[in-house]
């Protein structure tokens, strides 16, 4: 399969995804607080329920939410890292190609009308290289 990566669009998407993931932190805190509120209201009178809720909150819910966030973050950060690697490689290829083209004097000066565009066509991917 060919590599076709719209780097700019992917980056935009990842940035947006990070923003969404960021919302999960306060959302997790809100769940935590909601359970804590019930715990507090039942403490003393219904101690057994309050204790069970506390255990459930710290050992189950918070851990589950944190793990879910970690997995989401791993996906975003991992993909971002891949795209950055791709981008670096792409830039390297561009630089190398330009360097190679600059070191071939046998062609002489460019003909009128400029260098044929096919000389710099490395494939069909959409490429947006940021400096």
């Amino acid at each position: 399969m060919a590599w076709i990566v719209d780097v700019a669009a992917v980056k935009t998407l990842l940035s947006s995804a990070e923003g969404t993931l960021e919302l999960t932190e306060p959302a997790k805190d809100a769940v935590n607080t909601a359970v804590e509120t019930v715990e507090t209201s039942l403490a003393g009178e219904c101690e057994g329920i309050a204790t069970a809720l506390s255990t459930l909150r710290t050992d189950v819910l918070v851990n589950d939410m944190t793990d879910t966030m970690t997995r989401g973050n791993n996906a975003i950060q991992g993909t971002g890292e891949s795209v950055r690697a791709f981008q670096t490689m792409d830039a390297e290829m561009r630089d190398r190609a330009q360097s190679m083209s600059a070191s071939v004097p046998v062609y002489g000066p460019p003909a009128p009308g400029g260098v044929p565009s096919s000389m710099f066509n490395f494939g069909t991917r959409n490429r947006t290289v940021e400096s």
Binding site: E18, G19, L21, E22, T24, E25, I49, A52, L53, L56, D59, V60, N63, D64, T66, D67, T68, M69, T70, R71, N73, N74, I76, Q77, G78, E81
Partner: peptide
């Protein structure tokens, strides 16, 4: 309440936490 169990397993953060405090 005690019947409610974990739905995930512990996972380590492989990457920089970015915006999260993982």
């Amino acid at each position: 309440l005690k019947a409610v169990d974990r739905v995930t397993t512990d996972v380590t953060s492989h990457y920089a936490p970015g915006i999260l405090d993982l």
